[in-house]
Computed example of a mutant assay.
Amino acid sequence: MQPDTPNRTHVAEFVLVGFAEVLETRFFLCLLFLTMYLLTLVENLAIIVVVGLDHRLHRPMYFFLTHLSCLEIGYTSVTVPKMLAGFLGVAGGQRISYAGCLSQLFIFTFLGATECFLLAAMAYDRYVAICLPLRYGALVSWGACVRLAAACWLGGLLIPVLPIYLMSQLAFCGPNVIDHFFCDASPLLALACSDVAPKETADLLVSLAVLLASSAVIAASYGRIVWTLLQIRVAAERRKAFSTCAAHLAVVSLFYGTLFFMYVRTRVASSISFNKVVSVFYSIVTPMLNPLIYSLRNQQVKGALGRAFSCRSWKGQ
């Protein structure tokens, strides 16, 4: 235990319960989550490597896609290994230090906010490509892409600063058992023994700012895209144009649907178990599905993957 000092927690470490309520199936769940984690790593690394090696994919859309893949790898890696250690009963697998807990929450929030901004940047890229094709080279130049990506990462890095600072000012003097598989804000607030109102207000405002700002850009971009597509009289051309946006729309729907449910809400959730299931979906399932969505919906990505991993490529023919 840490000494009793002002503005400092009394708790030196927390215990992550994870999915203790399904103890009889923990080995099955461990295998399932391990498989999903490995698939996420392989799929996203494949996207990064293929885009880097294939000159046909050296375009702004795929530049942003590699950044998204990097985020997905980090997003899962910050939570899943610790969860798997708890499943396997590794010494200290369910325990996490106070500093480690806040660090995990900071990184998870940082990556999540960055992904929101990046998806908005990708929507803007599609808007310019479809609605302003003659100005695409000027508006979405490589310099603009680098600046947009840097702004996404910097904005994501700044977003959790205030919430994590306010969390560090709370006192945790009672139970140290977190009913979750990672250090999420809501179960941590449930353990605090000091006033959490400022922290809850900051979380709500920050979550709303990130989600509403990024979703507004996405909605405005796709609103203009849909209007432009409706003006195309040739059905084949309209379908071809829409197909370039379908993968991004699917990813946005998966990501934002769960985030709006999880983070724009009050402190006390109706069902902790249900919240953990939703957390699994957006922190593990979605990062695994995103590369599949992009590769299956995009002929250029499929072609590049086929060329990169074909036998002829390995033989150097």
Rank of each mutant, 00 (worst) to 15 (best):
L132D: 06
D195E: 08
A220S: 07
Y127G: 01
C131P: 08
Q231C: 07
A121W: 01
S270C: 04
N298P: 04
A250C: 15
M1V: 10
C193R: 07
F63D: 02
S186N: 13
F64L: 05
Y165D: 13
T40V: 01
S221K: 09
L71K: 01
I130V: 14
T228A: 15
F309H: 13
A246W: 11
Q2V: 12
H10E: 07
I218H: 10
A151T: 13
P187L: 08
L119F: 06
Y98N: 01
F28W: 06
A151E: 11
V78L: 03
L88Y: 14
F261Y: 11
I178N: 09
T228V: 04
Y256K: 09
G86C: 05
V285P: 07
N275H: 08
H10N: 08
L31Q: 13
A246Q: 13
A246L: 15
L170H: 03
A138N: 09
R265Q: 10
G112H: 04
A121Q: 13
R95T: 07
V49P: 01
S69N: 06
L292G: 09
T9R: 13
I232V: 15
F309D: 04
F182H: 12
C116H: 14
Y124D: 05
G223T: 00
S243Y: 03
W227M: 09
C245Y: 02
Y75Q: 03
F14N: 03
W314P: 05
Y222R: 13
T79M: 11
L204N: 00
F106K: 13
T228N: 07
A192R: 10
A113M: 12
V226A: 12
L254M: 15
L212H: 05
I159M: 07
L229A: 04
E43H: 03
A91F: 02
M167E: 09
S253N: 02
A151W: 12
P291M: 09
H55K: 12
F182G: 00
A216D: 06
D184C: 09
V11Q: 14
A121P: 02
E13R: 10
L259E: 11
A138L: 09
A192W: 05
C245H: 01
K82T: 09
A197P: 00
S310F: 05
L162N: 04
A304Y: 14
L139K: 06
S310T: 10
L289Q: 12
V206W: 08
K82Q: 14
Y294A: 06
A151S: 15
S273I: 12
F274I: 13
L254S: 10
L305N: 04
L205I: 10
A213F: 14
G223M: 09
R267D: 07
D184N: 12
G86L: 01
A246D: 04
A269V: 15
L111R: 01
L229Y: 01
D179W: 04
A185Y: 11
A151Q: 06
R238D: 10
V146D: 05
T9F: 10
I284S: 08
Q231H: 06
A20G: 07
G306W: 05
L57A: 01
G257H: 14
A46L: 11
Y75S: 04
L31K: 06
L158C: 11
F117D: 00
A144F: 02
V140M: 14
Y37P: 04
V22R: 00
S221M: 10
R59M: 12
R297T: 11
Y62T: 08
F108G: 01
L154H: 11
T286P: 03
F108H: 14
T40Q: 07
